[in-house]
Design a protein around this nucleic acid. Structure first.
Length: 406
RNA sequence: GGGGGUGUACUCAAGCAGUCAACGAGGGCAGACUGUAAAUCUGCUGGCCUUGUGCCUACGUAGGUGCAAAUCCUACCGCCCCCA
């Protein structure tokens, strides 16, 4: 068994566990720093490890388009290519169907027929592709060169096989129209059909001994927005296919309130097999994560700590919750105190707020690097606290103090 | 001394009679960001307030011509270039 639950919280659905992969074990609940293109922006792989990251997330779509999965396979797989010998998750490219099509070109999706959709690049947009989503998969056609790339459920499995990640995800489909029942229903059903195809391809490659990482796991993804019956339907259909674990997807893809996010989790998790690994895709804020742990989720990935670090936002831990601050703010221009005196990251132990403020104001890349480290250590430290609390049966205290106190 | 050019909001820089409190960029101020098209994006950036097809003050200074001037004319002041 690749996932083992070690301890359960008595007052919530939280659990402490361990995920065993071909590249080592991961203690859960855990957070996956996002390294979409094979790098967690601005930091080295050895630094990630030093800060407590046990597993990272990379992206199938991005690595496929550049530098290409075949090159990475020739390099000996993603682990060797990027020199990270710990576990790697690869997202399937499903999110890009959403983010490169629907989300950014919502104004004029040209409906081809039924559920198939085409998104035309707008002349004034920087976005370089036309996107077509149909039953077979998604094609991205370059707006300038006309080059076409087609990502299908099978292709996604094949790419991830070439990458040799430890945990692969099936290609899924969801949209931003969380209120349109029929549309959501169609994406749930297509996600199931795609999951079956992905599973089949996965088994085929495995039995043929063609997988670069024979120990690779495959996770199914549950969709259904906030419709109770669709979430339940999705869980049942995806579970019936039988995966090594499950992801709850489509819960925080743009503007959802925390209530909506938690509701979507509550509608999904109770129907999942108890002893299987559960990843919550794309979530979230520190509070989101703690609340999701309480609802039975084992792992998380989110761009918040890294992206917001690049935009100057720093997270700070307090006994009764956390706060954030914008290091670019004028009030820090001459603040010679450390960013967070309780933090042990390099920036907090060696530099002042005034210096960080100066670095950001002058667009110096060191600022980005220092805040990325700071925020990642905050997130990874939070997960460590959660695990320790679960171990010491003190999780309720963490739950009580999970809020942003800004 | 002669000739030419130029002076615009914090900075650079458009505008060359009305649609100009004045394009754009930078800077400044604030906000956003949830499976990364993201070191990105958005808003504001003369003053006042009853926040409006509102009032006032503004395009080197002082006058002038126009119904109307940042835009035209005159003088003056500053800066730049060329010739002597």
């Amino acid at each position: 068994m690749e996932f083992q639950i070690l301890k359960k919280d008595q007052a919530s659905k939280a659990r402490k566990g361990i995920l065993k992969t071909a590249h080592g074990e991961v203690r859960t609940p855990c957070f996956l720093p996002i390294g979409t293109k094979g790098t967690v922006k601005s930091v080295r792989q050895d630094e990630l490890r030093e800060w407590g990251a046990e597993i990272i997330l990379a992206n199938t779509y991005h690595l496929w388009t550049q530098p290409g999965d075949e090159l990475i396979a020739r390099a000996g797989g993603l682990h060797k290519f990027i020199n990270w010998d710990g576990p790697i998750f690869t997202d399937s490219g499903g999110f890009q169907i959403f983010s490169l099509g629907e989300k950014l070109n919502k104004k004029e999706p040209l409906v081809a027929s039924g559920h198939d959709r085409i998104y035309k690049r707008q002349p004034e947009e920087k976005f370089p592709f036309n996107v077509r989503v149909d039953e077979n998969g998604v094609s991205f056609q370059s707006g300038s060169s006309g080059d076409k790339m087609k990502l299908t459920p099978e292709k996604s499995v094949e790419i991830q096989s070439n990458l040799g990640s430890d945990v692969s995800l099936v290609l899924d489909e969801f949209t931003g129209d969380l209120d349109d029942y029929e549309k959501v229903k169609q994406t749930v059903e297509r996600t199931t059909r795609w999951a079956k195809r992905a599973k089949e391809k996965f088994e085929k490659l495995k039995s043929a001994g063609k997988s670069l990482n024979p120990g690779q796991l495959q996770l199914g993804i549950v969709q259904g927005a906030n419709y109770a019956d669709l979430r339940q339907k999705s869980v049942q259909e995806i579970s019936a296919i039988g995966f090594d674990g499950y992801c709850v997807g489509g819960v925080a893809v743009g503007g959802e309130t925390q209530e909506k996010i938690l509701e979507a989790i509550e509608l999904s998790v109770p129907h999942l097999e108890e002893d299987k690994f559960r990843h919550l895709l794309g979530v979230g804020t520190p509070e989101n994560i703690i609340q999701a742990v309480a609802r039975g989720c084992d792992s998380f990935d989110c761009v918040i700590p890294t992206r917001e670090a690049r935009h100057g936002k720093a997270y700070m831990a307090h006994d009764d919750g956390y706060t954030t601050l914008n290091i670019l703010a004028g009030e820090f221009k001459e603040d010679l105190s450390p960013l967070d005196p309780t933090c042990s990251c390099y920036g907090c132990t060696h530099h002042t707020r005034a210096y960080l403020n100066h670095l950001f104001r002058s667009s110096e890349i060191l600022g980005i690097r220092l805040l990325t480290e700071h925020n990642l250590r905050f997130y990874l430290g939070l997960m460590e606290k959660i695990r320790r609390a679960l171990n010491e049966e003190d999780f309720q205290k963490i739950l009580k103090n999970c809020k942003n106190r800004n």
